[in-house]
């Protein structure tokens, strides 16, 4: 009997955090022009100490304006999608649930398309419209998924799938009306793309990320019981309606956030929680932080590959996650079986 202790949790998170920093460092290094990390560190040190006023322009341009924001965006999106996936898997009691199953990404895509049609030239229009679309879908599916005043997992899943299909139909219709240019833009957006810089300062995005993950984390112990069954969880003292609502809102906000800034990157939300379960167990007190860190690692790694493998051609990051993710998952699955 080895129950989870704060110490073990800290150790696991520390290790994964270290791995993430390592991946980020590698990602910083590679790109159109390789950056010498040691030189960068030395310059940073000099700046910190005050020897030189600023880093020589070359590094700064690439690292701070192009690569670091993209890497940070990757961390954000990876963490958001993975935790959302883990949350939905518990909420819907379905191991195949991913962040998009309830239609949030279709709502965001619809928002983005409408912004292209109606407000073409405003700079922030697309991500804001996407988030608004996501928010409306979250509310609509919530009301569709209620029975006797509380969320019913089965009804929610059906309501979400139906909403997603409906929205996809609307999107397909609208896409035929788009001009060629907008069509290409939205097609790339739908595949998932980290190359567009974030619409608002990274600080705000990470704040929302932290709040949503934190909210879900407060229900982590309850989620472990919820997985045994709602009745059982209730008999063990879990406030099931409240937990379901918190997880639904938290996971949906995370999905909306990720999709608004980077389109719908697939497979991460579905696969990362399962891989983390295989490595570290199904306890949600561990699963949530490891999913966040694991998702960040996967997206940053995938994005680095996507932008360097056949440079200068850029591959969509969603394609990388699918190509690299599925075999990895298969490998882990086979190792687990006797």
């Amino acid at each position: 009997m080895k129950p989870l202790t704060p110490k073990r949790l800290a150790w696991i998170c520390g290790t994964l955090g270290g791995a993430l920093l390592l991946v980020m460092a590698i990602s910083l290094k590679f790109g159109a022009t390789p950056v010498s990390l040691t030189e960068l560190l030395v310059n940073l040190w000099r700046v910190a100490v005050g020897t030189i006023a600023e880093i020589p322009s070359e590094h700064q341009m690439f690292v701070f304006e192009l690569r670091l924001p993209r890497i940070l965006l990757g961390v954000l999106v990876g963490a958001a999608l993975s935790v959302a996936g883990a949350g939905f898997q518990a909420l819907l009691r379905n191991p195949l649930a991913d962040p998009y199953v309830l239609g949030v990404s279709s709502g965001a895509a619809l928002g983005a398309i409408l912004s292209l049609i109606l407000a073409a030239n405003r700079p922030l229009a697309m991500p804001l419209a996407a988030f608004a679309g996501a928010a409306v879908t979250i509310a609509a599916v919530y009301f569709l998924g209620r029975r006797s005043g509380e969320i019913d997992s089965y009804t929610l899943l059906l309501g979400g799938i139906i909403t997603a299909s409906f929205l996809s139909g609307v999107i397909m219709f609208l896409m035929t009306t788009l001009s060629g240019r907008d069509l290409r833009g939205i097609a790339f957006w739908l595949m998932g793309d980290l190359s567009s810089p974030a619409p608002v300062a990274a600080g705000w995005l990470f704040a929302v990320l932290g709040l949503a993950i934190g909210a879900i984390y407060t229900t982590a112990a309850d989620l472990n019981l919820l997985l045994s069954g709602e009745q059982e969880a209730m008999h063990l003292g879990v406030d099931v309606p409240r937990v379901k609502l918190v997880v639904y809102l938290g996971a949906s906000v995370l999905t909306g956030l990720a999709v608004s800034v980077s389109g719908a990157i697939g497979y991460v939300g579905l696969l990362v929680p399962h891989v983390m379960r295989m490595l570290f167990g199904s306890d949600y007190r561990v699963l949530i932080p490891t999913s966040a860190l694991g998702g960040a690692i996967v997206i940053v790694a995938a994005d680095t590959l996507a932008r360097t493998i056949v440079s200068p051609t850029q591959l969509p990051v969603g394609a990388m996650t699918a190509i690299a993710g599925a075999p990895t998952f298969l490998y882990l699955l086979r190792r687990r079986l006797p």
Binding site: G14, T15, G18, A19, L21, L22, M24, A25, L37, L40, L41, L44, W45, V47, A48, E54, I55, S57, Q60, M61, V63, F64, E65, L68
Partner: peptide, 27 residues
């Protein structure tokens, strides 16, 4: 992974510093 940690910790400090600097408009 643990052995890689010290090097990585340096980088962590570095990127933290970097985050502070980015706010100045680049020359």
């Amino acid at each position: 992974l643990l052995r890689a940690t010290p090097a990585v910790l340096y980088l962590a400090c570095a990127t933290n510093l970097a985050a502070v600097r980015v706010q100045d408009p680049p020359a």
